[in-house]
Nucleic acid binder design. Structure first.
Lengths: 335, 335
DNA sequence: GGCGCGTGGTTACACGTGTAAGTTGCCTGT
DNA sequence: ACAGGCAACTTACACGTGTAACCACGCGCC
């Protein structure tokens, strides 16, 4: 079992001091290094297979190369997984590592941040305001989906708006909404409902008929029945998820009804299975890759290391062009 | 912006030396501490909100509190996400943090390990043998799904066996297999095919008819057609995934055929949507939670910190009882 | 010929921890 | 009464970096 190879070893091999090694490897502009020794150092490092210790580096810098992403308590679905992927990839390009972690209960977030000393924080869930403020005050760059939601171009608002727009343009008057029951997703549900209500108002439609349902054929059938048998029957439904859309399709089938004839159904996320539904699911695709990359850029923006151009304007979730939210309509057969 | 609170601060507040603080907080058995000072130290630490710096701790110990989980290149699905969740939760109970990372290309794994100095390594994908050996030689505990696959109780083997068993007992003679096309999932596909072939032999059935298909209704329909029109028609199919099972159902519908009358379909994973398929999907559930916990235990087993009972036997993916693999049959309507 | 001055390096310290080795003071056995 | 031992601490060092501050040296300039 051989020891770790440190910068001291490299220095010795190159016949210079350890400091020189450090200057070379970090490309420090403050200290000029002759081309000859630079080459000697680099080759020695490569030859020995030197890998700097992140622990020591973090200790010295007071800031690690980790970017902490705090996840909502709900089980992580495909969308979030892809967001993580994309963000991770983007950050890696700047020498940063993404570490995703479920939001710890009871203010454990601050101690997590203290112990990891991440370079930045990405929130995909709501954090209590005082904690957030404390972290921000400590100079930590924080990219928050929660705040970005006030942004009219945010994904959750975009989804709701696009769903209603499509249904309204297809001539539907009375529309329903299917969302998961309260606990768990609560705040995303709130946002989504708000977006849909607002979109209905904008299209001069009556307020939507909301049903809370779990992913269960029987429950879905019951909800469908309530919609269809209402005094003013619902003719189209916005589902929270493609998953919930599947549930509705299943509920419809159980009642011997069909989409879109008896009830139009539109989903959200465009999971791979959406095109395989019976009938193929009309849905709103979320560009998770783009979303992940934007998160990464938000985190990078204020980080001294990665930001580069410190003159860059504050980044929002809005597209670079400033126009398009990261959602798009996928029309298939169900609505 | 207030400074970080270190163990020195705690020591000062409690009126003891920094070493004493360290001994108290780590509950070191080598050094006895009077109950009085222990209490003073603990209260001071709590009062100041002391959180030890993982960087410094890692630097000192030479080993971090991270457990590195290397993921396959394929996009991570629900199953793996849940495995990560479960493992993470279990490790956290031992003061360890799970960090999942896509397997870096071209032997980047070793440098990743060198720079992070993780306490253990969990492999959910195959790593080149020399690298693996090098890491093991460096004294790093490695929990590998790849190796565990030789274990007859491993999940992928269990899935294949259970699928075939169910179909054989239902009287099917000629069975097909639907797996994703080569690149990406390759080695899991290999394992699965081997398991299914072996199970067919055990049940005295002819070798299965393999079809490679992407998640696409047309492709699925083509595969279904080939199975049904073969000289000896296939009557039942094992799908790699529930996703692939959905594709097959969709393909069947496109041809005007039905499951299970024309072709029985059995999936794998039991995703939430499985029960909502038309018809509801018969599938093999993988107990991802249990699997994740076992991974965590494997990683913990050789870790000085978490292992506890160092006399514990080497842990395998086999269930504690020694009998049951973490898979179970869920019979619905499709097979 | 002394004086500033840029070039190319080195020495020295700090980051926050864990722990081995030393240092008290008190008690106990013969 | 005094060596020895044990409980309860403290002092000192190491882990591997990054970087500010210092230093030698050659070169042109009044």
């Amino acid at each position: 079992m051989d020891r770790r190879v440190t910068s001291t070893d490299v220095a010795q091999a190159a016949g210079v001091s350890r400091a020189t090694v450090s200057y070379v490897l970090n490309g420090s502009a403050a200290q000029s290094i002759s081309a000859a020794t630079r080459e000697r150092v680099l080759s020695a490092a490569r030859h020995l297979g030197y890998t700097p210790s992140t622990a020591a580096r973090t200790l010295r810098r007071g800031r690690s190369d980790l970017v902490l992403m705090l996840l909502p308590p709900e089980p992580l679905g495909r969308a979030l997984a892809m967001i993580i992927d994309a963000a991770s990839e983007q950050l890696e390009r700047h020498g940063l590592r993404l570490i995703a972690h479920r939001l710890p209960p009871q203010g454990g977030a601050v101690s997590l941040v203290h112990s990891l000393a991440p370079a930045a924080l990405i929130l995909t869930t709501a954090l209590e305001e005082p904690e957030l403020a404390a972290l921000r005050a400590a100079g930590l760059p924080v990219a928050s989906l929660h705040e970005a939601l006030s942004d009219p171009l945010s994904p959750d608002l975009g989804i709701g708006a696009l769903q209603v727009k499509h249904l309204a343009e297809a001539g539907h008057q009375r529309i329903g909404v299917a969302v998961p029951p309260e606990p768990g997703y609560s705040w995303r549900v709130q946002i989504r409902l708000a977006a849909i209500r607002e979109a209905c108002a904008r299209h001069r439609l009556p307020p939507p008929a909301v049903e809370h349902l779990r992913l269960d054929a029987d429950e879905a059938a019951a909800s469908v029945a309530r919609w269809l048998e209402a005094p003013e029957p619902v003719t189209a439904v916005c589902a929270f998820d493609d998953d919930h859309a599947f549930a509705l399709l299943s509920g419809l089938a159980a009642l011997g009804r069909r989409a879109p004839q008896d009830l139009a159904v539109i989903g959200a996320e465009d999971v791979p299975l959406a095109s395989l539904a019976l009938p193929p699911l009309t849905t709103v695709r979320v560009d998770t890759r783009l979303l992940g990359e934007r998160f990464a850029r938000m985190a990078l923006a204020e980080t001294p290391d990665g930001g580069g151009d410190s003159a860059a304007p504050p980044v929002s979730l809005a597209a670079p062009g400033g126009a398009v939210p990261p959602v798009s309509l996928i029309v298939r057969a169900s609505a």
